[in-house]
Amino acid sequence: MTAALDIKGLAKTYGDNVAVDHVHLTVPQGSFYGLVGQNGAGKTTTLSMAVGLLRPDAGTASIFGADVWADPAKAKQLVGVLPDGMALPERLTGREMLTYLGLLRGLSKDVVAERAGELLSVLELDGAEKTLVIEYSTGMRKKIGLATALLHAPRLLVLDEPFEAVDPVSAATIKGILREFVAGGGSIVLSSHVMALVEQLCDHVGVIDKGRVAAAGTLDEVRGAATLEDRFVELVGAATTATKGLSWL
């Protein structure tokens, strides 16, 4: 079976700084894949290259067999993306933005209207019908971002830090939607540095450290007998810093 996302040797260097060093990752169809790593480990850079938002120095990425760089139209039709910290069309309301994007994706007017209404109500954004996106809170931005990713019924979701700065209630809503998406046959890749969350949601894990894959496989393969957090600390070798106290406290 073709992988939902197949990353082969992606690499990116900024000046002397190797951000991503020939990463190989395979996300099987129907899996819920968690990508973990410290801040600056290269998660965002890898995912950006995998979906076609950043041109890699080397390597390829394909979504259900469609090469992201050689056949972008097909690949991008199959994927929904939620990048971290990017702007949106800020002067539109949530519904207007979904309408705009749905039409850009080539959906018909009626389909867009129906899906936008459903997404807004499921994500509990329909109360803010007259609010422009620029005035949204961080949690609302994540939710509307997720809505834009889901709108065109993709088969793969690539989510960069979807739970960062999201309140627990919204997080529960998002988790529910994501689980349902996987149950319905979809595949998800999400990046996070919250181990507990990845352990709770995902069935596959990839650990990225200093631009390389430190471990990858099913959740049980990677964590073994330990918790994911212990295993992660062991892999990235940062055990010593946790025991250093602060001298004035």
Partner: peptide, 29 residues
């Protein structure tokens, strides 16, 4: 405070959608 969206968006194609988004930005920003 800022302006509120009142008019419903009525375009039916991708290009019209871009125009509609831009025009809203022009009037609201």
């Amino acid at each position: 405070p800022s302006t509120r969206g009142r008019r419903p968006m009525r375009p039916a194609t991708a290009r019209q959608a871009v125009v509609a988004k831009e025009l809203r930005t022009w009037t609201r920003d």
